[in-house]
Amino acid sequence: MSDPSSPTPETEPAGEAVQQQARCGLVAIVGRPNVGKSTLLNALVGQKVSITSRKAQTTRHRITGIRTVDDAQFVFVDTPGFQTKHGTALNRTLNRTVQGVLADVDVILFIVEAGRFGLDDAKVLALMQTEAMKHKPVILVANKLDQVHRRAELAPWLQGMQQRHSFAEFVPLSARKDDDVKRLLAIVRPYLPEQPWFYDEEALTDRSERFLASELIREKLFRLTGDELPYTSTVVIDEFKEEGNLRRIAATIIVERDAHKGMVIGDKGERLKRIGTEARTELEKLMDAKVFLELWVKVRSGWADDEERLRTYGYE
């Protein structure tokens, strides 16, 4: 539902049908780490384009997902969770990405957990309250509604949120429920500018298969190592070749210490083998092609605080 006290966006006139002009716009998805941004992006697009993990700081790049519904094309931009706890060069780069995205978009989806609002959420909200941002519509999306057991408790929480910022809309939902996602799309649509589409109707993302390969391998890395492995680990694609319906991919997992290398490889190489198998299986589905995947693990101490190495690894 949208907040009834919020200004209602323009609607099409009632009566006989009118020809609708195409709409297209950039929609940022922002919030603190681990609030469900990537899960929501994948649900909005209708297919996985951003990796998900219980580990914070999973998303590190500006991921664009595209969804075209009738006359409207939504170009969603998933951002890294805004970092407040560690001052590494990596986190400074991630925060610059968030701020750069906000400057470019037409509407912002500010994701929080339904019924919760902490200091990290407040720091993200502050980015949208600068002089340059104050005219951009911000939609408050209260995610993980399925985890709220007493819905009546949301009313005072919402009242407090409205006092923090003049949100254009309030949308409680669960990113895992298709009806909720469709409702969010309908609410966002009137905020898209009337202009031609940026992409073909069938497009799902502007990212290359090479990039998606590195992201999926990194997802399996974090999912299968749990909390053992620090988030300062990454994946670099060394080789990506297309041979008809075959993709030959060689990738290196970069870690900071020898002990981390052992965690990734596992007993007799079993964990690394499982990371490769699960990544290959999902890549074959995503690319609709046969995938031959080779994985290596290398130690690069201090890479997350080395500006030159960050650029080499693809962090802008």
Rank of each mutant, 00 (worst) to 15 (best):
F167Q: 08
K177R: 11
T97I: 13
V124Y: 03
V105F: 00
D179W: 02
V98L: 06
M161C: 08
D121E: 08
A155P: 04
V138K: 05
V112A: 12
D146V: 10
F167I: 13
E113Y: 02
E131T: 15
G100A: 09
G118D: 14
H135T: 15
A152G: 05
A122F: 06
P137D: 13
H149R: 11
L127N: 08
D104F: 03
T130Q: 13
M133P: 10
P137W: 02
A114L: 04
G118A: 10
V107A: 13
H135K: 12
A155M: 11
K134M: 14
S166A: 14
Q129T: 10
V124K: 00
V112L: 14
V107M: 04
V112S: 05
Q147R: 08
A122K: 08
A103G: 07
K134S: 11
S174F: 03
V105L: 06
A122E: 15
W157V: 13
R164W: 08
R151P: 05
L140F: 09
P156I: 07
Q147H: 07
Q159V: 14
T130K: 13
L109S: 08
H165T: 04
A168L: 12
M128P: 06
H165Q: 12
V107F: 03
V141G: 01
Q99F: 02
V124D: 00
R151C: 03
L125F: 05
L154R: 01
T97V: 15
L158K: 04
V98M: 04
Q147L: 13
Q99P: 03
Q163H: 09
G115P: 09
K136T: 15
M161N: 02
I111P: 01
E131K: 15
V124H: 00
K144I: 13
A126M: 07
G160A: 14
N143A: 09
I111T: 10
F117Y: 12
D178S: 08
F170L: 15
W157D: 02
V105K: 01
I111C: 03
P137H: 10
H135I: 15
L173T: 01
Q147T: 13
K144Y: 03
G160C: 07
Q129C: 10
A142E: 07
G160S: 10
I139M: 15
L154M: 14
R150A: 13
F170E: 06
I108G: 01
G118K: 04
L145S: 07
D179V: 10
F167A: 11
A168H: 06
E169C: 05
A152C: 05
A103M: 09
K136A: 08
K144R: 09
Q162T: 10
D120C: 04
Q163E: 14
G100Y: 03
V105W: 01
S174M: 03
D178P: 03
A142R: 00
L119D: 11
P156M: 01
K123S: 09
H135E: 15
A155N: 06
V141R: 03
E153Y: 03
A175K: 02
D120R: 03
